[in-house]
């Protein structure tokens, strides 16, 4: 491509400049947040943003003076358990809808679809009562049990399972595989990408829970990171911005790394679940 004419070159330069400006705007909150997490709070308070007094003190403070590690640990456990449970239960119900014939299958599927229309936020009052009765307030169970399965996940996996070639089922029937074997040995591996997508989706979903854990947990033993950050923010009477920014950075950096690694899967999977 040696003979690029002037107009093409100009257009490209314009594209790059525009894209760079947009990238700076989008990333600005990160840069500002992460930069200030290295500055002493006194400097921040003075508006001295370009201080050279850079240190990791805020991070040390966040780790030693706050229960942020505990919050992180709680959240990771809850999100991981939720993810695994959703992968199992959603794939099982999706399997039933695609590969099993039973009475009222359509009705049950409609029920699942209806579930997707009902916002969890509208059901917090009875759910709070249920969890309270089960004695699960301020336990991990309160944050896990209601989310063991998801209608969206079932729906997404069903769409994916339906693309599994019918020949695979017929071949397995000839080989004499039962449903458990076919599900475990063929369907799950065949739909690996959708499973990874749902895994990422449910992990992030649990990670981002805010309202429900705020209602059902009130001690550091079970508090998750989102509410933990809020807690830190409101407990700090003199607004220790440096340490708060450090805490935010501690939380956001691992998720971003995970996202970059999983981006390829996530994108293709989401598009599949979305428009197909």
């Amino acid at each position: 491509m040696q003979s690029l004419d002037e107009r093409t070159v100009l257009k490209r330069v314009f594209s790059y400049v525009l894209m760079a400006i947009l990238a700076v705007i989008i990333l600005a909150p990160f840069f500002i947040g992460i930069w200030t997490s290295f500055l002493p709070t006194m400097e921040i308070a003075k508006g001295n943003m370009f201080s050279t007094n850079v240190s990791l003190d805020n991070y040390v403070a966040a780790f030693t003076r706050t229960p942020i590690l505990r919050y992180l640990g709680n959240t990771v456990v809850i999100a991981a358990v939720t993810m695994i449970a959703q992968l199992i239960f959603c794939s099982m119900s999706a399997y039933a809808f695609v590969f099993l014939k039973f009475r009222f299958r359509k009705t049950f599927f409609t029920l699942f679809l209806v579930t997707m229309m009902l916002p969890f936020e509208a059901e917090i009052i009875p759910n709070f009562a249920t969890i309270k009765q089960m004695g699960l307030l301020d336990h991990f169970g309160a944050l896990i049990i209601p989310f063991l399965t998801s209608a969206f996940g079932t729906f997404m996996l069903r769409q994916s399972f339906m693309q599994t070639p019918a020949e695979l089922k017929e071949a397995s029937d000839i080989e004499g595989l039962n449903h458990f074997q076919f599900y475990w040995k063929i369907v799950l591996p065949y739909n690996k990408i959708s499973m990874i997508t749902l895994g990422a989706y449910s992990f992030l979903g649990a990670w981002n829970q805010y309202l429900w854990p705020m209602l059902t947990t009130f001690s550091n033993n079970s508090r998750v990171i989102q509410n933990g950050l809020k807690q830190l923010k409101s407990e700090e009477t003199f607004n220790d911005w440096g340490m708060i920014q450090a805490s935010a950075a501690i939380i956001v950096i691992p998720t971003i790394i995970v996202l970059f690694i999983g981006q390829h899967y996530f994108k293709s999977g989401m598009n599949e679940g979305a428009v197909k």
Binding site: I225, I251, V252, T255
Partner: peptide, 9 residues
Amino acid sequence: VSVAVAAIF
């Protein structure tokens, strides 16, 4: 970015 982190930034 989660809700709380976005809010803090």
